[in-house]
Design a binder for these strands. Sequence first.
DNA 1: CCTCAAACTGAGGATTTATTCATATCTTCA
DNA 2: TGAAGATATGAATAAATCCTCAGTTTGAGG
Lengths: 217, 217
Amino acid sequence: MDIEVPSSLKRRKSPQQRRASATLEAIYEATIQLLVKDGLSELTTTRVAERAGVSVGTLYQYFPNKQALIYAVNEVYLDALAEKIKAACTARRGDVMESMVETLIDTYWQAKTERADVTRALYRSVVEMDNEALISAFIARTDAAAVAMFASASDAPSTDPVLVTRVILTVIFGAVRNAFERAVAGPIDDGLRQQLRIMCVAYIRAMQLSDPMSLAN
Amino acid sequence: MDIEVPSSLKRRKSPQQRRASATLEAIYEATIQLLVKDGLSELTTTRVAERAGVSVGTLYQYFPNKQALIYAVNEVYLDALAEKIKAACTARRGDVMESMVETLIDTYWQAKTERADVTRALYRSVVEMDNEALISAFIARTDAAAVAMFASASDAPSTDPVLVTRVILTVIFGAVRNAFERAVAGPIDDGLRQQLRIMCVAYIRAMQLSDPMSLAN
DNA sequence: CCTCAAACTGAGGATTTATTCATATCTTCA
DNA sequence: TGAAGATATGAATAAATCCTCAGTTTGAGG
Protein backbone atom coordinates (compact mmCIF):
# COMPACT_ATOMS: atom_id res chain seq x y z
CA MET A 1 0.00 0.00 0.00
CA ASP A 2 2.81 2.38 0.89
CA ILE A 3 4.72 3.52 -2.15
CA GLU A 4 7.99 5.28 -1.67
CA VAL A 5 8.91 8.57 -3.23
CA PRO A 6 11.19 8.13 -6.26
CA SER A 7 14.65 9.35 -5.25
CA SER A 8 14.83 11.68 -8.23
CA LEU A 9 11.94 13.63 -6.76
CA LYS A 10 13.33 14.07 -3.27
CA ARG A 11 14.22 17.54 -2.12
CA ARG A 12 17.90 18.28 -2.07
CA LYS A 13 18.26 20.02 1.24
CA SER A 14 16.17 21.68 3.87
CA PRO A 15 16.55 25.34 4.71
CA GLN A 16 18.45 26.07 7.88
CA GLN A 17 18.59 29.83 8.05
CA ARG A 18 15.62 32.14 7.92
CA ARG A 19 16.37 33.61 4.52
CA ALA A 20 16.48 30.12 3.07
CA SER A 21 12.97 29.43 4.32
CA ALA A 22 11.82 32.65 2.75
CA THR A 23 13.45 31.70 -0.52
CA LEU A 24 11.77 28.32 -0.54
CA GLU A 25 8.45 29.91 0.23
CA ALA A 26 8.91 32.38 -2.61
CA ILE A 27 9.71 29.54 -4.98
CA TYR A 28 6.57 27.66 -4.04
CA GLU A 29 4.46 30.72 -4.43
CA ALA A 30 5.98 31.61 -7.78
CA THR A 31 5.44 28.10 -9.04
CA ILE A 32 1.77 28.15 -8.15
CA GLN A 33 1.27 31.55 -9.68
CA LEU A 34 2.85 30.46 -12.93
CA LEU A 35 0.90 27.22 -13.01
CA VAL A 36 -2.29 29.18 -12.59
CA LYS A 37 -1.33 31.73 -15.19
CA ASP A 38 0.20 29.64 -17.97
CA GLY A 39 -0.03 26.00 -17.08
CA LEU A 40 2.59 23.32 -16.71
CA SER A 41 3.79 23.35 -20.29
CA GLU A 42 4.89 26.96 -20.05
CA LEU A 43 6.58 26.51 -16.73
CA THR A 44 10.36 26.76 -16.85
CA THR A 45 12.72 26.74 -13.94
CA THR A 46 14.18 30.03 -15.08
CA ARG A 47 10.80 31.69 -15.08
CA VAL A 48 10.00 30.35 -11.65
CA ALA A 49 13.28 31.64 -10.28
CA GLU A 50 12.77 35.00 -11.92
CA ARG A 51 9.31 35.44 -10.47
CA ALA A 52 10.48 34.27 -7.09
CA GLY A 53 13.21 36.90 -7.21
CA VAL A 54 16.09 34.45 -6.97
CA SER A 55 18.44 32.90 -9.49
CA VAL A 56 18.00 29.52 -11.12
CA GLY A 57 20.99 28.21 -9.29
CA THR A 58 19.25 28.79 -6.00
CA LEU A 59 16.27 26.82 -7.14
CA TYR A 60 18.51 23.90 -7.99
CA GLN A 61 19.97 23.91 -4.54
CA TYR A 62 16.66 22.79 -3.17
CA PHE A 63 15.28 20.70 -5.99
CA PRO A 64 17.26 18.22 -8.07
CA ASN A 65 15.08 18.90 -11.09
CA LYS A 66 11.91 20.52 -12.33
CA GLN A 67 9.73 17.50 -11.61
CA ALA A 68 10.75 17.54 -8.00
CA LEU A 69 9.58 21.12 -7.74
CA ILE A 70 6.13 20.32 -9.05
CA TYR A 71 6.06 17.30 -6.81
CA ALA A 72 6.87 19.32 -3.74
CA VAL A 73 4.22 21.91 -4.46
CA ASN A 74 1.59 19.23 -4.75
CA GLU A 75 2.87 17.51 -1.68
CA VAL A 76 2.46 20.62 0.41
CA TYR A 77 -1.01 21.16 -0.97
CA LEU A 78 -2.18 17.60 -0.38
CA ASP A 79 -0.68 17.49 3.08
CA ALA A 80 -2.63 20.56 4.09
CA LEU A 81 -5.80 19.17 2.55
CA ALA A 82 -5.44 15.82 4.28
CA GLU A 83 -4.88 17.64 7.53
CA LYS A 84 -8.07 19.64 7.18
CA ILE A 85 -10.05 16.53 6.45
CA LYS A 86 -8.55 14.72 9.36
CA ALA A 87 -9.40 17.57 11.70
CA ALA A 88 -12.97 17.66 10.49
CA CYS A 89 -13.28 13.91 10.97
CA THR A 90 -11.95 14.09 14.49
CA ALA A 91 -14.35 16.86 15.38
CA ARG A 92 -17.35 14.76 14.38
CA ARG A 93 -16.48 11.65 16.38
CA GLY A 94 -19.48 9.94 17.94
CA ASP A 95 -21.94 11.94 15.90
CA VAL A 96 -24.61 10.59 13.56
CA MET A 97 -23.67 9.22 10.14
CA GLU A 98 -25.69 11.82 8.37
CA SER A 99 -23.91 14.83 9.76
CA MET A 100 -20.61 13.09 9.26
CA VAL A 101 -21.07 12.80 5.50
CA GLU A 102 -22.26 16.34 5.28
CA THR A 103 -19.22 17.59 7.12
CA LEU A 104 -17.01 15.57 4.85
CA ILE A 105 -18.62 16.98 1.74
CA ASP A 106 -18.62 20.54 2.97
CA THR A 107 -15.04 20.44 4.17
CA TYR A 108 -13.71 19.03 0.94
CA TRP A 109 -15.89 21.28 -1.15
CA GLN A 110 -14.83 24.34 0.72
CA ALA A 111 -11.16 23.48 0.50
CA LYS A 112 -11.33 22.90 -3.24
CA THR A 113 -13.47 25.86 -4.18
CA GLU A 114 -12.02 28.59 -2.03
CA ARG A 115 -9.18 28.99 -4.52
CA ALA A 116 -10.62 27.37 -7.59
CA ASP A 117 -7.85 28.59 -9.87
CA VAL A 118 -5.19 26.96 -7.75
CA THR A 119 -7.20 23.78 -7.51
CA ARG A 120 -7.53 23.63 -11.24
CA ALA A 121 -3.86 24.36 -11.82
CA LEU A 122 -2.77 21.64 -9.46
CA TYR A 123 -5.24 19.10 -10.80
CA ARG A 124 -3.53 19.63 -14.11
CA SER A 125 -0.01 19.62 -12.83
CA VAL A 126 -0.06 16.37 -10.88
CA VAL A 127 -1.09 14.32 -13.80
CA GLU A 128 2.02 14.07 -15.85
CA MET A 129 4.26 12.99 -13.03
CA ASP A 130 5.33 9.99 -11.05
CA ASN A 131 2.72 10.77 -8.46
CA GLU A 132 1.83 7.38 -7.11
CA ALA A 133 3.42 7.95 -3.74
CA LEU A 134 1.68 11.28 -3.42
CA ILE A 135 -1.78 10.00 -4.22
CA SER A 136 -1.52 6.85 -2.21
CA ALA A 137 -0.33 8.73 0.85
CA PHE A 138 -3.24 11.12 0.57
CA ILE A 139 -5.73 8.31 0.08
CA ALA A 140 -4.32 6.39 3.00
CA ARG A 141 -4.58 9.35 5.35
CA THR A 142 -8.07 10.38 4.39
CA ASP A 143 -9.37 6.83 4.31
CA ALA A 144 -8.02 6.19 7.77
CA ALA A 145 -9.48 9.37 9.20
CA ALA A 146 -12.89 8.76 7.68
CA VAL A 147 -13.02 5.10 8.65
CA ALA A 148 -12.26 6.01 12.24
CA MET A 149 -14.95 8.65 12.21
CA PHE A 150 -17.64 6.46 10.70
CA ALA A 151 -16.81 3.59 13.00
CA SER A 152 -17.52 5.88 15.93
CA ALA A 153 -20.97 6.83 14.66
CA SER A 154 -23.83 6.17 17.02
CA ASP A 155 -25.84 4.79 14.13
CA ALA A 156 -23.07 3.09 12.19
CA PRO A 157 -24.32 0.35 9.90
CA SER A 158 -22.69 -3.00 10.49
CA THR A 159 -21.78 -3.25 6.85
CA ASP A 160 -18.06 -3.32 6.11
CA PRO A 161 -17.08 0.19 7.22
CA VAL A 162 -13.97 0.25 5.08
CA LEU A 163 -15.98 -0.38 1.96
CA VAL A 164 -18.60 2.22 2.79
CA THR A 165 -15.94 4.79 3.53
CA ARG A 166 -14.07 4.11 0.37
CA VAL A 167 -17.21 4.43 -1.68
CA ILE A 168 -18.18 7.71 -0.08
CA LEU A 169 -14.75 9.25 -0.47
CA THR A 170 -14.42 8.06 -4.03
CA VAL A 171 -17.75 9.59 -4.89
CA ILE A 172 -17.09 12.90 -3.17
CA PHE A 173 -13.56 13.37 -4.48
CA GLY A 174 -14.53 12.22 -7.92
CA ALA A 175 -17.69 14.27 -8.22
CA VAL A 176 -15.92 17.42 -7.14
CA ARG A 177 -13.22 16.88 -9.68
CA ASN A 178 -15.74 16.26 -12.38
CA ALA A 179 -17.57 19.40 -11.39
CA PHE A 180 -14.35 21.31 -11.97
CA GLU A 181 -14.05 19.81 -15.41
CA ARG A 182 -17.60 20.74 -16.28
CA ALA A 183 -17.16 24.29 -15.16
CA VAL A 184 -14.54 25.04 -17.75
CA ALA A 185 -13.24 28.16 -16.10
CA GLY A 186 -16.19 29.63 -14.25
CA PRO A 187 -17.46 29.05 -10.75
CA ILE A 188 -18.40 25.61 -9.47
CA ASP A 189 -22.09 24.85 -9.40
CA ASP A 190 -23.15 24.84 -5.77
CA GLY A 191 -26.36 22.99 -6.55
CA LEU A 192 -24.28 19.88 -6.95
CA ARG A 193 -23.11 20.12 -3.37
CA GLN A 194 -26.67 19.97 -2.10
CA GLN A 195 -27.47 16.99 -4.26
CA LEU A 196 -24.28 15.24 -3.28
CA ARG A 197 -25.34 15.51 0.34
CA ILE A 198 -28.75 14.11 -0.47
CA MET A 199 -27.23 11.27 -2.42
CA CYS A 200 -24.71 10.26 0.21
CA VAL A 201 -27.29 10.42 2.96
CA ALA A 202 -29.64 8.29 0.90
CA TYR A 203 -26.84 5.79 0.44
CA ILE A 204 -26.16 5.59 4.13
CA ARG A 205 -29.83 5.12 4.89
CA ALA A 206 -29.91 2.31 2.38
CA MET A 207 -26.96 0.71 4.11
CA GLN A 208 -28.63 1.02 7.48
CA LEU A 209 -31.88 -0.47 6.19
CA SER A 210 -30.25 -3.48 4.59
CA ASP A 211 -28.48 -3.96 7.90
CA PRO A 212 -29.79 -6.95 9.90
CA MET A 213 -28.95 -5.15 13.15
CA SER A 214 -31.31 -2.33 12.34
CA LEU A 215 -34.26 -4.67 12.78
CA ALA A 216 -33.56 -4.55 16.49
CA ASN A 217 -34.95 -1.02 16.67
CA MET B 1 -22.24 26.42 -23.93
CA ASP B 2 -20.66 25.51 -27.24
CA ILE B 3 -16.98 26.25 -27.29
CA GLU B 4 -15.19 26.17 -30.60
CA VAL B 5 -12.06 24.24 -31.31
CA PRO B 6 -8.97 26.48 -31.27
CA SER B 7 -7.80 26.82 -34.87
CA SER B 8 -4.31 25.75 -33.95
CA LEU B 9 -5.73 22.35 -33.05
CA LYS B 10 -7.70 21.73 -36.20
CA ARG B 11 -6.64 18.92 -38.48
CA ARG B 12 -4.85 20.02 -41.60
CA LYS B 13 -6.52 17.87 -44.21
CA SER B 14 -8.60 14.78 -44.48
CA PRO B 15 -7.41 11.66 -46.25
CA GLN B 16 -8.82 11.13 -49.71
CA GLN B 17 -7.16 7.97 -50.86
CA ARG B 18 -7.24 4.67 -49.07
CA ARG B 19 -3.56 4.65 -48.15
CA ALA B 20 -3.96 8.02 -46.51
CA SER B 21 -6.68 6.66 -44.25
CA ALA B 22 -4.42 3.79 -43.34
CA THR B 23 -1.64 6.22 -42.54
CA LEU B 24 -3.86 8.27 -40.31
CA GLU B 25 -5.06 5.17 -38.56
CA ALA B 26 -1.49 4.04 -37.99
CA ILE B 27 -0.61 7.42 -36.54
CA TYR B 28 -3.49 7.28 -34.07
CA GLU B 29 -2.61 3.79 -33.04
CA ALA B 30 1.06 4.64 -32.60
CA THR B 31 0.20 7.67 -30.52
CA ILE B 32 -1.96 5.66 -28.15
CA GLN B 33 0.64 2.96 -27.83
CA LEU B 34 3.32 5.46 -26.96
CA LEU B 35 1.09 7.30 -24.51
CA VAL B 36 0.40 4.03 -22.76
CA LYS B 37 4.04 3.01 -22.75
CA ASP B 38 5.85 6.22 -21.83
CA GLY B 39 3.35 8.96 -21.18
CA LEU B 40 2.85 12.36 -22.69
CA SER B 41 6.17 13.83 -21.67
CA GLU B 42 8.11 11.22 -23.62
CA LEU B 43 5.94 11.55 -26.68
CA THR B 44 7.67 13.15 -29.65
CA THR B 45 6.31 13.52 -33.14
CA THR B 46 9.37 11.76 -34.50
CA ARG B 47 8.78 8.75 -32.32
CA VAL B 48 5.13 8.59 -33.26
CA ALA B 49 5.97 8.71 -36.94
CA GLU B 50 8.62 6.09 -36.51
CA ARG B 51 6.30 3.69 -34.75
CA ALA B 52 3.56 4.34 -37.25
CA GLY B 53 5.98 3.49 -40.01
CA VAL B 54 5.79 6.85 -41.74
CA SER B 55 7.98 9.92 -41.78
CA VAL B 56 7.52 12.97 -39.61
CA GLY B 57 6.66 15.01 -42.63
CA THR B 58 3.64 12.85 -43.26
CA LEU B 59 2.42 13.38 -39.74
CA TYR B 60 2.65 17.11 -40.23
CA GLN B 61 0.53 16.93 -43.32
CA TYR B 62 -2.41 15.95 -41.19
CA PHE B 63 -1.70 17.79 -37.96
CA PRO B 64 -0.42 21.35 -37.69
CA ASN B 65 1.39 20.53 -34.47
CA LYS B 66 1.85 18.00 -31.73
CA GLN B 67 -1.02 19.30 -29.62
CA ALA B 68 -3.42 18.82 -32.47
CA LEU B 69 -2.41 15.18 -32.64
CA ILE B 70 -3.16 14.56 -28.99
CA TYR B 71 -6.34 16.49 -29.38
CA ALA B 72 -7.49 14.37 -32.29
CA VAL B 73 -6.78 11.13 -30.49
CA ASN B 74 -8.86 12.22 -27.55
CA GLU B 75 -11.57 13.46 -29.83
CA VAL B 76 -11.91 10.10 -31.51
CA TYR B 77 -11.97 8.38 -28.14
CA LEU B 78 -14.57 10.67 -26.62
CA ASP B 79 -16.75 10.55 -29.71
CA ALA B 80 -16.88 6.80 -29.54
CA LEU B 81 -17.59 6.88 -25.84
CA ALA B 82 -20.38 9.41 -26.21
CA GLU B 83 -21.87 7.29 -28.96
CA LYS B 84 -21.91 4.20 -26.77
CA ILE B 85 -23.61 6.08 -23.99
CA LYS B 86 -26.14 7.56 -26.33
CA ALA B 87 -26.98 4.14 -27.73
CA ALA B 88 -27.43 2.70 -24.26
CA CYS B 89 -29.69 5.60 -23.32
CA THR B 90 -31.83 5.15 -26.38
CA ALA B 91 -32.20 1.47 -25.71
CA ARG B 92 -33.60 2.11 -22.25
CA ARG B 93 -36.28 4.61 -23.23
CA GLY B 94 -39.50 4.22 -21.32
CA ASP B 95 -37.95 1.91 -18.78
CA VAL B 96 -37.85 2.41 -15.00
CA MET B 97 -35.41 4.91 -13.46
CA GLU B 98 -33.62 2.22 -11.56
CA SER B 99 -32.61 0.15 -14.54
CA MET B 100 -31.68 3.31 -16.38
CA VAL B 101 -29.06 4.30 -13.84
CA GLU B 102 -27.72 0.82 -13.71
CA THR B 103 -27.35 0.72 -17.45
CA LEU B 104 -25.61 4.06 -17.38
CA ILE B 105 -23.15 2.92 -14.75
CA ASP B 106 -22.47 -0.41 -16.37
CA THR B 107 -22.00 1.05 -19.82
CA TYR B 108 -19.58 3.70 -18.68
CA TRP B 109 -17.76 1.33 -16.38
CA GLN B 110 -17.36 -1.26 -19.08
CA ALA B 111 -16.12 1.27 -21.60
CA LYS B 112 -13.52 2.63 -19.23
CA THR B 113 -12.25 -0.63 -17.80
CA GLU B 114 -12.09 -2.80 -20.87
CA ARG B 115 -8.81 -1.17 -21.81
CA ALA B 116 -7.73 0.33 -18.55
CA ASP B 117 -4.24 1.20 -19.76
CA VAL B 118 -5.61 3.29 -22.60
CA THR B 119 -8.11 4.95 -20.31
CA ARG B 120 -5.35 5.89 -17.93
CA ALA B 121 -3.09 7.16 -20.67
CA LEU B 122 -5.78 9.36 -22.13
CA TYR B 123 -6.91 10.67 -18.74
CA ARG B 124 -3.36 11.90 -18.41
CA SER B 125 -2.95 13.24 -21.88
CA VAL B 126 -6.03 15.45 -22.05
CA VAL B 127 -5.08 17.45 -19.09
CA GLU B 128 -2.33 19.68 -20.31
CA MET B 129 -4.17 20.90 -23.35
CA ASP B 130 -6.70 23.40 -24.51
CA ASN B 131 -9.42 20.84 -24.14
CA GLU B 132 -12.44 22.92 -23.30
CA ALA B 133 -14.18 22.31 -26.59
CA LEU B 134 -13.56 18.61 -26.27
CA ILE B 135 -14.94 18.26 -22.79
CA SER B 136 -17.90 20.51 -23.28
CA ALA B 137 -18.93 18.69 -26.44
CA PHE B 138 -18.76 15.38 -24.63
CA ILE B 139 -20.70 16.70 -21.67
CA ALA B 140 -23.34 18.23 -23.91
CA ARG B 141 -23.90 15.00 -25.78
CA THR B 142 -24.06 12.74 -22.78
CA ASP B 143 -26.20 15.14 -20.80
CA ALA B 144 -28.67 15.41 -23.63
CA ALA B 145 -28.87 11.67 -24.11
CA ALA B 146 -29.34 10.99 -20.42
CA VAL B 147 -31.87 13.75 -19.91
CA ALA B 148 -33.98 12.40 -22.76
CA MET B 149 -33.79 8.93 -21.31
CA PHE B 150 -34.72 9.92 -17.78
CA ALA B 151 -37.54 12.12 -18.98
CA SER B 152 -39.06 9.09 -20.65
CA ALA B 153 -39.00 7.01 -17.48
CA SER B 154 -42.33 5.59 -16.41
CA ASP B 155 -41.52 6.57 -12.86
CA ALA B 156 -39.68 9.82 -13.50
CA PRO B 157 -39.67 12.16 -10.50
CA SER B 158 -41.06 15.59 -11.26
CA THR B 159 -37.92 17.17 -9.87
CA ASP B 160 -35.86 19.16 -12.34
CA PRO B 161 -34.71 16.37 -14.65
CA VAL B 162 -31.73 18.33 -15.90
CA LEU B 163 -30.38 18.75 -12.40
CA VAL B 164 -30.87 15.10 -11.50
CA THR B 165 -29.20 13.98 -14.67
CA ARG B 166 -26.26 16.27 -14.18
CA VAL B 167 -25.77 15.05 -10.66
CA ILE B 168 -25.88 11.43 -11.65
CA LEU B 169 -23.47 11.83 -14.52
CA THR B 170 -21.11 13.91 -12.46
CA VAL B 171 -21.04 11.29 -9.78
CA ILE B 172 -20.59 8.37 -12.14
CA PHE B 173 -17.91 9.95 -14.28
CA GLY B 174 -16.13 11.37 -11.28
CA ALA B 175 -16.22 8.24 -9.19
CA VAL B 176 -14.87 6.14 -12.01
CA ARG B 177 -12.02 8.50 -12.55
CA ASN B 178 -11.22 8.56 -8.89
CA ALA B 179 -11.27 4.78 -8.85
CA PHE B 180 -8.62 4.84 -11.54
CA GLU B 181 -6.51 7.15 -9.48
CA ARG B 182 -6.81 4.94 -6.43
CA ALA B 183 -5.85 1.83 -8.32
CA VAL B 184 -2.40 3.10 -9.13
CA ALA B 185 -1.71 0.64 -11.91
CA GLY B 186 -3.66 -2.43 -11.00
CA PRO B 187 -7.21 -3.47 -11.81
CA ILE B 188 -10.21 -1.35 -10.89
CA ASP B 189 -12.11 -2.46 -7.83
CA ASP B 190 -15.39 -3.89 -9.04
CA GLY B 191 -16.96 -3.62 -5.60
CA LEU B 192 -17.26 0.07 -6.19
CA ARG B 193 -19.48 -0.51 -9.17
CA GLN B 194 -22.00 -2.38 -7.06
CA GLN B 195 -22.01 0.33 -4.44
CA LEU B 196 -22.32 3.04 -7.04
CA ARG B 197 -25.45 1.38 -8.32
CA ILE B 198 -26.85 1.16 -4.82
CA MET B 199 -26.05 4.79 -4.17
CA CYS B 200 -27.57 6.13 -7.34
CA VAL B 201 -30.69 4.06 -6.92
CA ALA B 202 -31.02 5.31 -3.37
CA TYR B 203 -30.70 8.85 -4.64
CA ILE B 204 -33.42 8.38 -7.20
CA ARG B 205 -35.72 6.84 -4.62
CA ALA B 206 -35.10 9.84 -2.40
CA MET B 207 -36.00 12.14 -5.28
CA GLN B 208 -39.16 10.21 -5.92
CA LEU B 209 -40.17 10.28 -2.28
CA SER B 210 -39.69 14.00 -1.89
CA ASP B 211 -41.79 14.36 -5.01
CA PRO B 212 -45.31 15.69 -4.35
CA MET B 213 -46.63 13.71 -7.30
CA SER B 214 -45.62 10.44 -5.76
CA LEU B 215 -48.30 10.88 -3.09
CA ALA B 216 -50.87 10.14 -5.79
CA ASN B 217 -49.91 6.46 -5.77
C1' DC C 1 -0.13 4.95 -71.01
C1' DC C 2 0.09 9.67 -69.32
C1' DT C 3 -0.77 13.34 -66.47
C1' DC C 4 -1.66 15.67 -62.25
C1' DA C 5 -2.86 15.83 -57.70
C1' DA C 6 -2.36 13.40 -53.57
C1' DA C 7 0.73 11.41 -50.48
C1' DC C 8 5.16 10.73 -48.60
C1' DT C 9 10.20 11.58 -47.39
C1' DG C 10 13.80 12.95 -43.82
C1' DA C 11 17.90 15.79 -43.12
C1' DG C 12 18.52 19.97 -40.89
C1' DG C 13 17.34 24.90 -39.14
C1' DA C 14 15.88 27.30 -35.32
C1' DT C 15 14.70 27.55 -30.91
C1' DT C 16 13.96 26.30 -26.39
C1' DT C 17 15.17 24.68 -21.88
C1' DA C 18 17.14 21.96 -17.99
C1' DT C 19 20.97 21.90 -15.30
C1' DT C 20 25.85 22.86 -13.71
C1' DC C 21 29.62 25.02 -11.33
C1' DA C 22 33.08 28.33 -10.28
C1' DT C 23 32.53 32.31 -7.77
C1' DA C 24 30.59 35.68 -4.61
C1' DT C 25 27.96 36.96 -0.64
C1' DC C 26 25.74 36.43 3.62
C1' DT C 27 25.08 34.35 8.88
C1' DT C 28 26.36 32.41 12.71
C1' DC C 29 28.87 31.84 16.79
C1' DA C 30 33.13 30.91 19.14
C1' DT D 1 36.36 39.69 14.63
C1' DG D 2 37.06 36.13 11.66
C1' DA D 3 36.50 31.53 10.07
C1' DA D 4 33.45 28.18 8.33
C1' DG D 5 29.41 26.77 6.64
C1' DA D 6 25.15 28.14 4.39
C1' DT D 7 23.14 30.47 0.64
C1' DA D 8 22.94 32.82 -3.69
C1' DT D 9 24.52 33.99 -8.49
C1' DG D 10 23.88 33.51 -13.69
C1' DA D 11 26.60 32.85 -17.91
C1' DA D 12 27.52 28.83 -20.32
C1' DT D 13 26.73 24.00 -21.80
C1' DA D 14 24.64 20.36 -23.78
C1' DA D 15 20.76 18.12 -25.30
C1' DA D 16 16.27 17.76 -27.09
C1' DT D 17 12.60 18.44 -30.13
C1' DC D 18 9.39 20.82 -33.08
C1' DC D 19 8.43 21.65 -37.62
C1' DT D 20 9.65 22.96 -42.58
C1' DC D 21 10.40 22.34 -47.35
C1' DA D 22 12.38 20.96 -51.65
C1' DG D 23 12.03 17.02 -53.85
C1' DT D 24 10.33 12.01 -54.76
C1' DT D 25 6.92 8.41 -55.19
C1' DT D 26 2.26 6.68 -55.74
C1' DG D 27 -2.42 6.25 -57.45
C1' DA D 28 -6.62 7.51 -60.17
C1' DG D 29 -9.02 9.06 -64.09
C1' DG D 30 -9.03 9.97 -68.93
